[in-house]
């Protein structure tokens, strides 16, 4: 967990792991909702940037959740 992006990927996948046992259809919105509710804008911006760069390391459900979350999120610009 050296780089900030690695750390966020790790955290996102951890959330994904919890929801995995609820099945794909519940897991994807569950993960998206959790990140939406608990991550600060700079963390969201960073994980979206990582997503743009290919989203290496993200579990499939998490990748899907982040993709859908990004479509419905408008973040204030970074200062």
């Amino acid at each position: 967990m050296s780089s900030p992006a690695d750390r966020l990927v790790y955290m996102a996948n951890q959330i994904g792991t919890f929801f995995r046992s609820q099945g794909h259809d519940k897991a994807v919105p569950g993960i998206a909702d959790h990140i939406k509710k608990f991550w600060d804008p700079r963390m969201k911006r960073a994980i979206f940037a990582h997503l743009d760069a290919g989203g290496t390391g993200l579990e499939p459900n998490v990748l899907e959740a982040l993709t859908s979350l990004r479509q419905t999120t408008s973040l204030p610009a970074a200062h």
Binding site: P4, R7, K37, F38, W39, D40, P41, R42, M43, L75, P76
Partner: peptide
């Protein structure tokens, strides 16, 4: 007020180092 959640303590530490 800002409608976006803020940083949690461990996130603050990460953001400080960043």
């Amino acid at each position: 007020l800002n409608p976006e959640p803020g940083l949690r303590i461990p996130n603050m530490f990460d953001a400080a180092i960043e």
